[in-house]
Nucleic acid binder design. Structure first.
Lengths: 188, 188
DNA sequence: TTCATTTTTTAACATTTGTAAAAAGCCAGC
DNA sequence: GCTGGCTTTTTACAAATGTTAAAAAATGAA
């Protein structure tokens, strides 16, 4: 559980006692490629640490699917609405590879938050880190054109791109696959 | 300080003791229209509750400014990067009206978080609420076209629109002002 | 390898949106 | 009520992106 352990520790420094409180609640699960792990409109009672594999989040548009997040080793799969409010979210998350995950019930987390200041701060830090990442991709998407963002992606996540169909990447960049092809032809 | 008090209470229920710990750190400030309260590239050491007035956040593009947030009574002005990491952010926030604000130093907040579980959970809830709002506008922007989002805005914030120049709203919707004019002509 | 399936690219054309500049509308101060 | 400055709309044209369809390339299983 190397990746998951790293993730948990890197969020907020925890004493061994509190770390163990979290770890003992994790449950290893293996799920196949194409499995839909989070469904829009459904309250999800767990979050998942990605130990191995790739996942992607998307929303259903009127006549298309829009991908807005990719996760890989060290990332966390969760529906914010479910995690935070116990209300259904609007995103679907599916697995693009066979995955090894560690599951954690949100209900248990809530209990831990209320009984340990350290864990409450760990939870605060988790929300804050996700918030910053979300804001970064939000803002990046605002003022950089698709071409530039694709080049950024190539530089920051060259490996990720090879694991993901181009159609999803195009959607993530906010253009059609045809346009992404044009971009690729152009920068070659 | 009606609006600010409401905001603080609605984030997470606090006992009177803890509420007072927060309130006694607030400092009333009045700032004029057009004042730039958060500057990109600068670490900001305070956050501000909007008691009265309107603010907007934007990033500088290569040759334009992109507005991505409006705040009014009951909202909170903060630079997430500064608030969370003590690192400079990329957004500017300026005031679109003369404003009454309550200032709170982030350093003080940090101290409170580490000494009171209730306040740590208040801080967690704050991050979580902002996260959900950010995700909502992120996703909304992804799969709804500008026209639809404008109609949504008209319905959810009819008053806000009257307080904000159309050029900023166009930017917020991700189109030029010319396109927004076309949209307005179309739905009339 | 070979065949079938999926993914990616290319092409032609339609549509949308942007750009720049002019016109119209609105408001504050004289 | 008029004037000057600011905001919003309109126009004509240009550029970018989408749509649809087909070809080409890549992938994977037998």
């Amino acid at each position: 559980m190397q990746n998951t352990l790293e993730t948990i520790k890197s969020i907020y420094p925890l004493k061994e006692v509190h770390l163990q409180l979290l770890l003992q609640e994790l449950k290893a699960v293996e799920l196949p490629k194409n499995h839909v792990i989070i469904m829009a409109g459904k309250v999800e009672r767990s979050l998942y640490f990605i130990e191995q594999g790739v996942a992607r989040a998307y929303v259903e548009g009127r006549d298309n699917r829009i991908t807005f997040w990719f996760g890989m080793e060290g990332d966390i799969i969760l529906s914010y609405h479910s995690y935070i409010n116990n209300t259904p979210g609007y995103e679907n998350i599916d697995l693009l590879e066979n995955c090894k995950l560690y599951e954690l019930k949100t209900e248990i987390l809530e209990t831990l938050y209320n009984s340990h200041t350290e864990l409450a701060n760990w939870g605060r830090k988790l929300a804050e880190l996700i918030l910053i990442k979300t804001e970064e991709s939000y803002i990046g998407r605002l003022f950089k054109p698709a071409k530039e963002r694709y080049i950024d992606l190539l530089q920051t996540d060259p490996l990720l791109i090879q694991r993901i169909p181009l159609g999803y990447i195009a959607s993530y960049l906010g253009v059609t696959q045809v346009t992404l092809s044009r971009i690729r032809a152009e920068i070659k």
